[in-house]
Amino acid sequence: MSLASLCHRVLSDLRQHLYTQIITTVVVSLSIVIFAFFTLIYFNLHQFVERFGTELGLVVFLTNDIPQGKIPGLYQKLTELPGVEKVTYISSKKAFKRLENYLKGEKGVLEGIDPKFLPPSFEVRVNRAVFHLKRIRQLAEEIGNWPEVSKVQFGQEWIDRLESFLRLFRILVAVSGLLLLFTAGFVVANTIKLTVYARQEELKIMRLVGATNTFIQGPFLAEAFMQGLLGSSLAIGAIFVCYRFLQGLAASSELLRGVNIYFLPWPYTLAIITSSILFCVLGTAIAMWRFLRL
């Protein structure tokens, strides 16, 4: 079958079965909107945890008895670590002052306490582009092993909490995603099957006049390809509108100001569109194979 003949048959089919084609595309589109929306939420939460972890940076507490002469060497060592943006030394005195400022009206609590009781520390800010949460943890472990360092903090508790929430959410997304995918798959597969069954008389006649399975399947598969492509593109478009709306909401809200909302990265978008096309084409091929082998 030539390409021109295929195009002619596809166009003719589209004209004759426009309603069914629209319904199938809408079903595909709706199923993908729901799935992609969940993915968008999950992706943004994941990004938030990543960013939050790196924004906290590291606080490297030194031992109380560290000789003053070793501080510049340590400072140098920290700044030379790849991905480290800024290192600030906080002496015991400065730390004490910060504590006083923090306590404000309750300053009396600190009366009689040696200003050197707080250990000196370095505040380390890392480059977010280089450091992911996992890498920060590794860096903290590495610095923690230095003999002059007593402790390294990087908001571990917060991150652990967020991470465990994210783990739970990931399971929730995975389970709901699978359920959604299954439901969407079931609906789409049955819509396709109904489309094929509705045209089985036509298929029978084609077989009768000597059409090969490839000839019969060609336009159906091309239509399925278009349904998958159009359905998923519409869904991604709808999700983009939704993303812009959420972005506007975040910008105008006091609570959410500063919270960045990200759109699905292009590999995700591409994966959704490709899977949708594959799903439609395979669904049609399977529905037709069942019919054509009879």
């Binding site: 079958m1 003949s5 084609m206 006049v209 059409a211 090969t212 000839f215």
Partner: peptide, 19 residues
């Protein structure tokens, strides 16, 4: 849902003849 022409042409289409 096919015209008389299309019904008859179907037998030729399957053997690879264009319209």
């Amino acid at each position: 849902d096919h015209t008389v022409f299309d019904n008859v042409a179907l037998s030729l289409e399957v053997i690879g003849l264009n319209r």
